[in-house]
Structure formats: structure tokens, C-alpha cells
């Protein structure tokens, strides 16, 4: 009943942070805990230094453009791969290159969800937390495969090209995204090799984006750079406030054993695990569709991590599922919003 009321409150447009706060306060009152403890998780938000990656990567996104890597590389390249049907050598080469480029390009897009998932899972399941770097690297393979597989579906390829074709043409003319792809590949290699943590990657990416756009390409003035920094900071502050409140939510779910009781009720077995994975996947895709990558992870992860772990699902696997699920949801939103190409031909 309370859940339905909260969903209704969410649907009428109450900000997400307020809805999460209401959920947590209700949980605290039901568990007869001191509601003031809610504020502790907000006060301790700053202690999770890794979360600094969120405003930094938002800054990168503000400079390069929203969903820059998705728009400039993943969908256009995947669209090309979709056009090269058949199993001739050139088609196979294009598809392999698509997988490589998409995986590298999407890597930076996934830094924020990986950091957020790690922060949430450390509270929701303290004994099963995974490193954000390992999670990101592991998630790259299915993400690249998903991007290429999606591109091979005729309808998706045509829509993607109609939306992102102009960006792709701009990329060919200027060659600048090549620089950015090179930087993304270097940064991801550094993460895979263990030379850099995700916070380092976010710092380097932010400095890279600012220096190249202001000093090398002269696309932005210092005033514009400052405006973008303010916009990124304000946007990510909203996300991090939800994170702070969600940490309390994850803690109360963990401490009260609510989800443990739920998973005990579900029982254990292959059928139950498969049913859980199906429901969790649908929740994640819906979360990514409605809330986007960041809020989607923050809201759904505290729910599914404890249940999944109690059913014997691997913690790293759950993290990968979270990242891929919200990415699919976000990508679906982009495709739904996209107009169909003129003439109706999906890939013509």
C-alpha cells in the first residue's frame, strides 16, 4: 500500500529525492528507528570520495554534449555494422571493429553508473562489494555485444542513423571524435592494466575535455566553460542527493532484513533464480528508460542486490546486469524518441 502511494507521488511529479526521503522516513518509523539517522547518510556522502567522479564525468558530458560517445560512435558505427549484412570478410571486420569501438566508447559513459553501483552495493551488501574498476571492465564486453547486436536489427539501425547521422558526418569532417576515442581507449587501457582508478580516469577526462575544447580547438570560451561546470555540478548534485538518501534506504533494507525475508519466501532453486533475473532485468530496463543511467542504478540496485545475493547470484554478475540493464533502458528511450527515417526504409 505504502509502495503504491509512493509510486503515485512519484508519478505526479514530486522530485525523486523527496520520494526517496519519504520512503526512508516511512521505513525508519516502521522499524522504530530514529528518523534523524536519515541525515547521517547525507552527512557521510562526502566520505565516499569516489563519488567525485560523478560531477567530473558530468562535466565531461556537459562539454562534449549529452550522450556524446553514444551519439558520436556507438549508434552510428553500429548502424554501419547493421548495413553490412552477410558473412564476407569486410562485413566481419566492420562488425569486429564496431564491437571494439563501441566497447571503448561506451566505457566512459559507464563510469558514473559503475561508481554509483559500487557505492550503493557497499551499503546494501557490505560483504559482497565489488571494485568499480573491475565492474566497469567486466561490463564492457556485454555492453559492446549488446550495441552490435542491437545494430544488426534492421529497424534499430535505420532509426539510429536518422538521429545520429549528422553527428557521424560531423565526426568524419572534423576528426575530433577520433581524438576523443583515442583518449577513451587510453584511459580504459589504463583502468584494465590497473594503472588508474576510476576517480583518476574522471579527473583526466575532465581536464582532457576542458583543455582540448578551450585551448586546442577554441570551441569554448572560459565563460562558457564555467557555465558548463556550473550546470554539471548542479545536475550531479541532484543525483548525489538521491544517492545520499538511497544509501539510507539500502541500509534500512539491509538492517531490517526485509529483502532477505522476501528472498526466503521466494525460496531457492533454478526456477526462482531465473524468475528473479527476469524480473530484475525488466526493472532495470524500466529504471533506465524512466530515470536514465544514474538514477536508474541508484533506485533499483538497493532492491535487487540483497535478493540476488541471497539466491546465489554472483555479486559481479549482478553489477554487470545493473549496468547493462539501465543502458538498454536508456538506449531504448533514445530510440523511442527518434523519428523514423524518411521513406520508411529501416536501413535504406
Amino acid at each position: 500500500m505504502i509502495g503504491l502511494v509512493l509510486l503515485l507521488v512519484l508519478a505526479i511529479g514530486v522530485p525523486v529525492f523527496a520520494v526517496v526521503a519519504m520512503a526512508v522516513l516511512t521505513g525508519f518509523l516502521q522499524a522504530e528507528l530514529e528518523p534523524a539517522l536519515l541525515i547521517i547518510s547525507v552527512l557521510e556522502l562526502g566520505d565516499q570520495v569516489q563519488l567525485l567522479a560523478v560531477p567530473l564525468m558530468s562535466f565531461v558530458a556537459a562539454i562534449l554534449g549529452r550522450d556524446y560517445y553514444l551519439n558520436s560512435w556507438i549508434l552510428p558505427i553500429s548502424s554501419m555494422a547493421g548495413e553490412n549484412s552477410g558473412l564476407n570478410p569486410s562485413s566481419i571486420a566492420v562488425r569486429l571493429l564496431s564491437a571494439l569501438a563501441s566497447g571503448c566508447a561506451v566505457g566512459l559513459t559507464m563510469v558514473i553508473p559503475a561508481v554509483l553501483y559500487t557505492a550503493i552495493s557497499e551499503v546494501a551488501a557490505p560483504r559482497h562489494s565489488v571494485s568499480a574498476e573491475v565492474l566497469l571492465v567486466t561490463a564492457l564486453i556485454p555492453v559492446a555485444l549488446v550495441a552490435v547486436a542491437a545494430a544488426c536489427m534492421p529497424g534499430l539501425g535505420g532509426r539510429a542513423r536518422s538521429v545520429f547521422g549528422s553527428v557521424s558526418v560531423a565526426a568524419e569532417r572534423t576528426g575530433r571524435p577520433l581524438w576523443d576515442l583515442g583518449a577513451a581507449i587510453l584511459l580504459l587501457v589504463a583502468v584494465v592494466a590497473g594503472w588508474l582508478a576510476l576517480l583518476d580516469v574522471a579527473l583526466v577526462a575532465a581536464i582532457w575535455a576542458a583543455v582540448t575544447r578551450v585551448l586546442v580547438f577554441h570551441e569554448l570560451s572560459w565563460q562558457q566553460l564555467t557555465d558548463k561546470a556550473v550546470r554539471a555540478a548542479v545536475t550531479s548534485a541532484g543525483v548525489l542527493l538521491v544517492v545520499g538518501l538511497s544509501l539510507a534506504w539500502a541500509a534500512i533494507l539491509h538492517d531490517a532484513g526485509t529483502l532477505q525475508a522476501l528472498s526466503d519466501g521466494i525460496g531457492r532453486g533454478t526456477g526462482q533464480t531465473l524468475a528473479f533475473l527476469l524480473v530484475a532485468s525488466l526493472l532495470l530496463v524500466a529504471g533506465g528508460f524512466v530515470f536514465g543511467l544514474q538514477i536508474g542504478v541508484v533506485l533499483i540496485a538497493p532492491l535487487i542486490v540483497p535478493v540476488g545475493l541471497s539466491l546465489g547470484v554472483d555479486a559481479l554478475g549482478l553489477g554487470v546486469m545493473c549496468l547493462v540493464g539501465v543502458l538498454l533502458g536508456r538506449g531504448s528511450l533514445a530510440l523511442v524518441r527518434a523519428p523514423l527515417p524518411e521513406g520508411g526504409g529501416p536501413t535504406s
Binding site: 512519484l10 508519478a11 525523486v16 529525492f17 548542479v234 541532484g238 543525483v239 530515470f291
Partner: peptide
């Protein structure tokens, strides 16, 4: 600028 759902 806070995240909101604008369904209804």
C-alpha cells in the same frame, strides 16, 4: 533541476 517523473 531536480529529477522528476512527468507521466501524469
Amino acid at each position: 533541476g531536480h529529477y522528476r517523473v512527468r507521466v501524469i
